[in-house]
Design a protein around this nucleic acid. Sequence first.
DNA 1: CCGGTTCTTTAAACCGGTTTCATTATACAA
DNA 2: TTGTATAATGAAACCGGTTTAAAGAACCGG
Lengths: 340, 340
Amino acid sequence: MVKKAITIRDIAKIAGVSPGTVSRAINNSPLVNPETRQKVMQVVKALNYVPNRMAQRLATGKTLNLAVIVPFFTAPSVTERLKGVVSTLARSRYDLIIHNIEDPEQRADCFRTIPRQDRVDGVLVISISPTDEEVPLLAEAGVPIVLIDAHHPALTTLHQITVDDVAGGRAVTEYLIGLGHTRIGFIGDPANNPFNFTSSRDRARGYRQALEAAGILYRPEYYAEGPHGRRYARESAIKMLTLPERPTAIFAASDVQAVGVLEAARELGLRVPQDLSVVGYDDVEIAEILGLTTMRQRLFESGRRGVELLLKTLEDPETEPVYEVLPTELVIRDTTGPPP
Amino acid sequence: MVKKAITIRDIAKIAGVSPGTVSRAINNSPLVNPETRQKVMQVVKALNYVPNRMAQRLATGKTLNLAVIVPFFTAPSVTERLKGVVSTLARSRYDLIIHNIEDPEQRADCFRTIPRQDRVDGVLVISISPTDEEVPLLAEAGVPIVLIDAHHPALTTLHQITVDDVAGGRAVTEYLIGLGHTRIGFIGDPANNPFNFTSSRDRARGYRQALEAAGILYRPEYYAEGPHGRRYARESAIKMLTLPERPTAIFAASDVQAVGVLEAARELGLRVPQDLSVVGYDDVEIAEILGLTTMRQRLFESGRRGVELLLKTLEDPETEPVYEVLPTELVIRDTTGPPP
DNA sequence: CCGGTTCTTTAAACCGGTTTCATTATACAA
DNA sequence: TTGTATAATGAAACCGGTTTAAAGAACCGG
């Protein structure tokens, strides 16, 4: 039932040459007579022969696969970066293998088992900063690795593409302070989390720096952290906005969380931006739809750039490792204004 | 510099057995003495040995790869289905290769080159219904294929998971008619498109059926089709809503397009739902956020189910092909009401 | 006409596993 | 004690390519 696949030896026999010659003919080796090549190619075409990929891979040691490791595929910011990766890779000869990480265990597994020469030729890691323990795993991996939206100071041999989240957090907060706000809340992800997500933590750091620089006292009741997502952000916002002295502005560590804040405001009958200013982070599509003021990151671009660096390194392994900080840009829309 | 990888023969030598025995020990073959296995496994662990995947693949003829072919990764409904796929596959031993299709040429290429035994063990196709010419390619492919949100009557040997878009379109329209609307617009994708996307076309068909059944005349000026996306939908809606006799309700073929309609309404100063009712399709996250009435599809579920069927077929190739129609459900939120 | 190149080609080794087949050791029944 | 079934193992073939080493053929100048 399953028709036997044609092998290089079949072609060789029919063309009256040796398998080695067929291989050379196919791979445009200069070590083959043009006439012979033509004869071989004729047979190849006639039988519709395509070399077995796995055999090629075993023989050459190249997999022609790249892997991308992403955490929760669910977050729109992650998907957006992935789009950049996929679309840049579309025209290359590499296949892209996706590894989704949904719990810390998987993560350790991935770092251990994926970056191996026999599995892939290169790896992209999105939004997962390696821990100190993981550094050696990555530093000594057998294949080139590029970190996107992730970094570790010790990994000087890897390409790293990041944004300056501390500066971003500071800029957002300074903008709110500039509008006249002094009671500014922050809602983000847990600073300590099993995935070592650093962006929320860094943005919070920038937030505190800006407050301090402006001589505004940091108030713990204006700071909330919890699981990523709308629901938790909404709950936190409600808690914060029903304090005796509520904040007049809330800075959310992501657009998704900002949406939760907007929902809370609506629920409490607070007008945005008259009663409450809200700022997000990322500028995913929903931010534009809702008219959310936010800090734009070049998400798609980060994926694109990561692939470029990876391909370049695959071509020339001596490529100098790059540490690139992508710019951010505050996009002011309709959810921010002066305090009431 | 590159440290030579450990092979099964190294392990064999150190453990004092033959490579064959090591292979059996690793693969839990019953043909190996428990003591021997333990001895071997000790060495394996000590040297941190992991079998070379490519060699395994070549030897077994299994690639341990599955491919998923998706069109524009950009559409949220596609991403949602993909999430179902990725998350269901997470715990399996298969790797997932993503093929993004952005133009018709790539598409033909994919159908021709991907479903080969030496590349993958199985294929998922999302939202791309094969054309008549492509049917033989898929029917005679060397590996099992599952169509998700896609179908073709001639492909009786493949699993197919679809929704009844005609019925869905009809249901939405009937709902609007039930509210009292008679001037109902439709905005969707081109019925004839190079990708053979069928969902918008089918929903439009249901829309016309419902109108006809209710004795409402179909008006061409109430029907618009164009490139998927908010922008075009917004423009079409504006055109439609500035007609001398404007529709009192608009049915958009997707939530993304419904958002465009909402933007148009806002721009024109029309209140939703008092002046205009809007219904979307899919129930992606943004629909919930915006309170959009929409026809819910189990997007995530469709991906999950597709993977289940594929895995089952890989385990038992004799599995009967399934043609499954997933249910839809009208979710009524805040964008629909009686006509003004 | 001979030795040395250059150009082609073949045979065989190799990549690193799995699997078949033969062999040996052990257990058990007659 | 012998014969036979059973369990465990090793040797070798195999998967389907690529690549190296060796060899043959053609051509050159001297």
